[in-house]
Design a protein around this nucleic acid. Structure first.
Lengths: 337, 337
DNA sequence: CTGAAAGCGCTTACAG
DNA sequence: CTGAAAGCGCTTACAG
């Protein structure tokens, strides 16, 4: 910057103001600076500004180590929003990072990020309080809590499950099972509760052994689907906590020569791009990643200016997308024939 | 830091030295500082250090906007390495970022990253020269070039294609097609050349219309597979430039009621996790993401200390993984029967 | 082994 | 409209 100033024949203060844009600089001076900047290919040093401002124009994203395409798809959207705002995305993986979530949080603090998106389960939410204590705007997915410097972006699981169960009911299904996530995880229990509540609203009884604990991954879905298929009163439909689990369920059905949707219908949750690649294509409760990313970004921005920096809840709509993995229940089909 | 110094009853210089670890500090002084740090929950401000050092302990990753799980899987591995080195990952998407690659590069420069991984096609390599000019260690995947501050991590396409074609030949295939990436992209032409060279080495003729231009995505693979299946002398085997393309090819075959591997064999490239989820599971030329991430990380480290900061080439081995999508060629099968 | 001081590159009241 | 100067939080030769 000193070089630029020298070349333009002005002071560094003037250069700074000229680059800032909002400050008052004579037009010809600005031009002089502009030329010098281009001639020297000047790139400002952000850390100097950060040191001054206490803000780095960087946003952190802390993602759990689930090998889930959904997160990548979210990340893509979020990065686009950040870069449109001249912000950069700092990535940290809560699990694989040496030191776990605490070290991720520490990195975010050391770098004075302008905000952090956390995609954890509630069990792990505690380490992130360090962020809000230090007044770093933080938004968590599906934490269902708000507070100072802390907002929540929640998916509308209830509506999604209601639609899914409703759709199955229409197709004649009464024996509907659910493959949840790992036991004890909060998100898992939210979706499970949403499922149960949907059953109740549709007056469908919950059956013994119909609620299974998966692990959000393909292998968990595969394993639990096998178990379900071995039940005496085998379900005619299965809803999975996410698409990866549902894909595992499809695989298990294939391996057991159980036809989908002929013998059993399957519904996932997320709406990842793969759903349309597998066969049968997967019916799913689809979440708009763009909407989710937008909510997260807005939430972080709002927290900076909100009164008392108090957070609020954002709702992300979901939508049942019907594809090949759902069809009429066996019994109904026979009746029709 | 001033607070810590005050509380510990020492100067900030001493605090800095105590935290540094390598400097000489009396043991009891160090303890005093340690206590103060803990009492105040002190988190150092990295930008101050960056300002001083000119290094930020951040690594940039610039990824093209391909909706390809392979990149995420790579990113995961790379992030783990970075965080084990107390480095953070700065993510930029070359395409979606407003301003394209140039603005991504600018962000990296402004933030004084210690190195950058670029995963582009050669067409786009030029903007990244700004990095090496400014002495930022840069490593590109499959660029096949090296230079000052510039290393290359190349996959061993030739070996992979040789194995793939060899495997198909053994199974009796002679009519082998290839679905490439977008025309004009360098990576696409590397893999295509590797395929052609493999054909030559195995004395298999290349047929008209057997080389197709896809787009690295499912829809491109789908589209080109349909075209291939409509040929009069339909191929008995298809190799795709990457797994997403191969998955598209599988879908097209399914839609056309063409059996895989009964009527046609399919081989992908990458080895993404999904290959084992689809049906039939996908035979692929698998690339170790861990190895690739390790090479990139090492390359960046090396460039800082190398003589004249001259880059070099790293080779990442690949390996054919046989799964369900490959089988004996029709003709051979008949002969056997 | 420790402290005072300079300096990294920027921004911004404060004068003029 | 512009310049000189202080200061952001850290590190590190330089004395002691």
């Amino acid at each position: 910057m000193r070089d630029v100033a020298r070349r333009a024949g002005v002071s560094v203060a003037t250069v700074s103001r000229a680059l800032d844009g909002s400050s008052t600089v004579a037009e010809e001076t600005a031009l002089l600076v502009q030329n010098a900047v281009e001639a020297l290919d000047f790139v400002p040093n952000i850390s100097a500004r950060t040191l001054k401002y206490g803000q780095s124009r960087a946003l952190g994203v802390i993602i759990p180590d689930l090998s889930n395409p959904f997160f990548f798809e979210f990340l893509r959207e979020f990065e686009a929003l950040a870069s449109a705002n001249e912000q950069v995305v700092l990535l940290a993986n809560a699990e694989t990072s040496t030191g776990g979530p605490r070290s991720s949080v520490r990195q975010m603090l050391m770098r004075l990020v302008d905000g952090v998106v956390v995609m954890p389960s509630i069990d792990e939410l505690e380490p992130y309080q360090l962020l809000t204590l230090r007044k770093v705007p933080t938004v968590a997915i599906d934490s269902r809590r708000v507070g100072p410097y802390f907002s929540d972006v929640s998916l509308m699981h209830e509506e999604g499950m209601l639609q899914a169960v409703g759709c199955l009911k229409e197709l004649g299904h009464r024996r509907i099972a659910f493959i949840a996530g790992s036991e004890g995880l909060f998100i898992s229990s939210i979706r499970l509760e949403a499922f149960r509540s949907a059953l109740r609203k549709h007056l469908i009884p919950e059956r013994a052994g119909y609620i299974r604990a998966g692990n959000y991954r393909v292998d968990g879905g595969d394993r639990e689907m096998r178990a379900l298929l071995e039940l005496r009163d085998r379900p005619t439909a299965v809803i999975a906590i996410n698409d990866m689990t549902a894909l595992g369920a499809l695989r298990a059905a294939r391996a057991a020569s159980v036809s989908v949707p002929g013998d059993v219908s399957v519904i996932g949750f997320d709406g990842i791009e793969l759903d349309e690649v597998v066969s049968p294509t997967l019916t799913t409760i689809s979440v708009s990643r763009a909407h989710m990313a937008k909510s997260c970004h807005t939430a972080l921005k709002e927290l900076q200016t909100a009164r008392h920096h108090e957070g609020r809840q954002f709702q992300v709509p979901v939508e049942l997308v019907r594809r090949q993995s759902t069809g009429p229940a066996r019994r109904l089909r026979k009746a029709v024939l």
